[in-house]
Design a protein around this nucleic acid. Structure first.
Length: 599
RNA sequence: GGGGUCGUAGUUCAGCCCGGUUAGAACGCCGGCCUGUCACGUCGGAAGUCGUGGGUUCAAAUCCCAUCGGCCCCGCCA
């Protein structure tokens, strides 16, 4: 333990090298290292210490014959002590080389060894595999961050952002910071609020995204803007959702959608090239939203495997099977997923699947198996021979295949089958992990009808430009539902990486859209007056996109949890186990803010 | 707000179904020995409010209820 009289805030000598970078070519060099003790192997006479820094591990040899003081000090060293050493890089004798370590051909013959700080035994070993519970890892995040896996993830994140910054800089984008303390615009997610001391009873909101501000930057003549922007949404957490997260936010003046998409493709490809060294083919394929919903039941389809949803309705237009006939009479459709013979589900699994869909959605799932003798399954006997062959042709049914069938409203059935498709893909490991299936989903609808609010809501956000061919449809609320937006989402392997749109730059059109959304002119002006006013001052056409940095990094790191690519993430209860945030505050602070806690 | 799941030495877990010895194991930790180990070896040792509170019982880690926390999911997330 460093005694107080020897404690110094400065190390006794400066590091010359990182532990993990030393190689046989360094043999003979005198080096100085700083690092944490990974393990100590004390043979009594001879002590080996694996010393770790961010670059890796190197073996120290403490030999009393070389330096008695170092050997003595080394005996005191324990896991996670921080030490400084000096010594000579020497080639290991034949037979003592460790092929497992990049530094395994050499070791450090130590001539000076000082413990700079001690540590109690860590609550978990700083190894490569994360054997500790996440609760413990987050409480001692500084120890967790020493693990090679976390070091690698954070470094990949850095590399990705660096590549993206370089790419955008090279394409004329100017990085501009926008305020964290901004105005609450209650549309969309719940805001995080910050009370204003100077203006009692008034609040700032943390931005859910810099959407409006970047539009105003375009009106402000920046022409091309980007930002790695922190965003805040006070909603419940998920494995891929944190209350604060980062977006690569960009906006351009006068772009066609393909101009924005090309920039986005380029920057994502740059990140993949920099981090993983893989070459991504651009441009990415485009798929219309309507087609994605029809074939995959999702606006973010995973294209790494098939099992597309098939529309069998035409095979059953004249069916005597009551269930299908009634659905079709009411404008519903019959959809199916054809599971090829190679992927067999047991009777029990089929029953469980049926039961799960019944309890979760109160919907029926039917199935048939194609046997040599014909269709087999609970509904087989209701289906005529003509219907069978017609359905088989549509679905590409072959002997041995299993077909899962649902009938009902497309809006209800397709997402369920889409979910089922993903479950089946996972169950039969149909999606290769290293396969990268990028695509753009385009032609989103501008609005959808919200049953809860009994009004139209924006599918994207209210600043999204309608498709020019559909402008006439905005004259009434009912026809507006059919209008398309100039909006696009980038999807990778079933994850939405980002999306964007061309924005409305006409003051009148923007007011019209707010009106369709049920906002009175007064409300619109109160909430978004500054944007509406700005649009009136020669706002140029503009558009852009935003990408989730954290999700991109998840993909780049091959992890399922955002928490693995964020240095200090929060738990599902939005708590930071390390600092204890959020916490109560001094009553005086509350008084200054004119805030009273009522519960 | 709802559903599922987990909570036992510092850590990872077993024990829980079917209540009954002193609650075990591994790693880690502490002490001894050890000059070529690299998950060092070896001999010995310490270590527990079984998440918390209540209930049932002669007896609760074990059964019941409540509650807190981690994780996954639904709702929510323009």
């Amino acid at each position: 333990m460093p005694k107080s009289e020897t404690y110094s805030p400065l190390p006794p000598w400066q590091r010359t090298d990182y532990c993990g970078t030393l190689r046989a070519s360094d043999a003979g060099r005198e080096v100085a290292l700083h690092g944490w003790v990974q393990t100590r192997r004390d043979h009594g006479g001879l002590i080996f210490i694996d010393l770790r820094d961010r670059e890796g591990i190197v073996q120290l040899v403490l030999n009393p014959a070389r330096d008695a003081g170092s050997h003595q000090a080394g005996a005191e060293a324990r896991s996670e002590f921080f030490v400084a050493v000096r010594g000579t890089v020497v080639r290991r004798a034949a037979g003592t080389v460790n092929a497992e370590l990049p530094t395994g051909e050499i070791e450090i013959a130590v001539s000076a060894f000082e413990i700079l700080n001690v540590s109690p035994p860590p609550p978990f070993a700083i190894g490569d595999e994360d054997t500790a519970a996440e609760e413990v890892r987050l409480k001692y995040r500084y120890l967790d961050l020493r693990r090679p896996a976390m070091q690698r993830n954070l470094r990949r994140r850095h590399q990705a952002l660096q590549a993206i910054r370089n790419f955008l800089d090279a394409h004329g984008f100017i990085e501009v910071e926008t305020p964290i303390l901004f105005k609450s615009t209650p549309e969309g997610a719940r805001d995080y609020l910050v009370p204003s001391r100077v203006n009692p009873g008034k609040f700032y909101a943390l931005p859910q995204s810099p959407q409006i501000l970047k539009q105003i930057l375009m009106i402000g003549g920046l022409d091309r803007y980007y930002q790695i922007a922190r965003c805040f949404r006070d909603e419940d957490l998920r494995a891929n959702r944190q209350p604060e997260f980062s977006q690569i936010d960009l906006e351009m003046t006068g772009p066609r959608p393909e101009d924005v998409q090309s920039v986005a493709e380029g920057m994502i490809a740059a990140a993949y090239e920099r981090v993983l060294g893989v070459d991504i083919n651009t441009p990415f394929p485009r798929m219309a939203y309507a087609d994605a919903m029809e074939s995959y039941g999702s606006d973010k389809p995973d294209l790494r495997f098939g099992l597309e949803i098939r529309n069998l309705t035409s095979a059953f237009t004249a069916t005597s099977f009551k269930v299908f006939a009634e659905v079709i009479a009411q404008g519903g459709r019959v959809y199916a997923i054809n599971l090829p013979a190679a992927n067999q589900l047991t009777r029990r699994e089929l029953d469980e699947m049926t039961e799960a869909i019944r309890t979760r959605y109160s919907m029926g799932l039917a199935w048939i198996k194609v046997q040599d003798a014909g269709w087999q399954g609970p509904i087989a006997k209701f289906v005529s021979e003509a219907e069978r062959s017609s359905a088989a042709e549509i679905a590409g049914l072959k002997t041995g295949d299993t077909m899962l069938i649902m009938a009902g409203e497309p809006a209800k059935v397709r997402p369920i089958l889409g979910d089922l498709r993903l479950q089946l893909g996972a169950k039969f490991s149909l999606a290769a992990e290293d396969d990268l299936k990028f695509l753009w989903i385009v032609d989103f609808p501008l609005f959808e009808y919200s049953e809860d609010d009994k009004r139209l809501v924006s599918v994207n956000h209210p600043f999204t430009a309608p498709h020019p061919d559909d402008l006439r449809m905005l004259e009434s609320g009912s026809s507006a539902l059919g209008a398309r937006a100039i909006a696009y989402d980038m999807v990778l392997n079933g994850q939405e990486l980002g999306g964007g749109s061309i924005r409305i730059h006409s003051r009148e059109l923007q007011l019209k859209v707010f009106e369709l959304l049920g906002l009175s002119r007064e409300e619109a002006l109160e909430r978004f007056g500054f944007l509406i006013e700005a649009l009136g001052y020669g706002a140029p056409p503009h558009g852009g996109c935003a990408f989730g940095v954290d999700r991109l990094c998840m993909m780049l790191c091959g992890t399922d949890s955002l928490r693995d690519v964020i240095a200090f993430p929060k738990t599902q209860k939005a708590v930071d186990p390390m600092s204890g945030a959020p916490s109560e505050v001094d009553p005086r602070q509350l008084r200054e803010l004119s805030i009273k806690v009522t519960s």
